[in-house]
Nucleic acid binder design. Sequence first.
DNA 1: GGTAACACCTTGTAAGATACACCCATGACG
DNA 2: CGTCATGGGTGTATCTTACAAGGTGTTACC
Lengths: 175, 175
Amino acid sequence: MTVAAGNQSRGEIAPGTRDDDAASATLASVELEVAQLLRRAERTHASGEPTGARRTGLDRSGYLLLHALGTHGPQHINALAARLGLDASTVTRQVVALEKAGRVRRTRDPDDGRAVVVEPTEGGLLQLTEHRSARADLYSDVLRDWSRLDRALLAELLARLNEGLDDYRRRRDTD
Amino acid sequence: MTVAAGNQSRGEIAPGTRDDDAASATLASVELEVAQLLRRAERTHASGEPTGARRTGLDRSGYLLLHALGTHGPQHINALAARLGLDASTVTRQVVALEKAGRVRRTRDPDDGRAVVVEPTEGGLLQLTEHRSARADLYSDVLRDWSRLDRALLAELLARLNEGLDDYRRRRDTD
DNA sequence: GGTAACACCTTGTAAGATACACCCATGACG
DNA sequence: CGTCATGGGTGTATCTTACAAGGTGTTACC
């Protein structure tokens, strides 16, 4: 599915026009909403909420890490760090935590004694699934008044926003 | 502006149908994207990025707090806490930090000796504006390939998602 | 008015996520 | 071999937040 992708009046020739104002109002609004979303979702994700972290025992970091492992298979710490856009030291700690909880396994790479292969356990994958489903239920409640179309739009736009942020980051890092 | 609000085929009578699967896939996707967004935006917001917090000296908490003050005027700590969905102790600390930075003023409420009125300073409001504009520039870069329409859609859907999360929270708290 | 209950804010303490700067072990190459 | 690069782990620091407990001012009620 692709959201209306044309329609852009490029070439904003005259700065300070009404159009320009509207455009920057939109951007400001996106920015503000994202900032607020961070706060809200953080709290919904983290502590407050018995359906989430506590019950399934997966916090956001663990969830995303397991997701990466589930989707892209066993990987080295550095690969995970790159994929998740995190510092390797952070990933190390997260992996250690997950290992303690029995959700991943850590083994030395036989082909490279420096490297560590991180691999999800059965239990880890199971918990990932459970967590995902619990979270989906939650969002089903949060979005209960939304139309199918709007939900799909939201998913799509969020995905694109994430891509945009990734690209932005890469651009800045490459400088 | 309102996004397509109808179209929902309610009454999901037969669980396990294809429609149902699609719906829960959408939810799962929203959930995952939000989780990822948190991570990304957090980092874009916080440290990594010289255009943001460091340069304007406003972190996310301060930004949202000042925004609340700018939009709704001087308020008590508790009112802010309620509005921001935070614990009062957290707001106290944030206000103290902003006060140290000269961005808000704290005075005893003459009508109620227990309460503290928090009020933005000139400089605080100025910095809020600057920050907002810097952030808008950032998002203008992040969303540079997006059509006007899609940006507006994103803003709208994010706003609704935030509302949804708020409502959800209220529902749970009221239980 | 006096006391008890309540409201508002602050401080103490703790937890999670993350980064950066270092350090150690291993591998690669001359 | 010896030097440099690479992969990971540790020490430390920051930021954000919550819950619990305490101080001080208000209100309500006898």
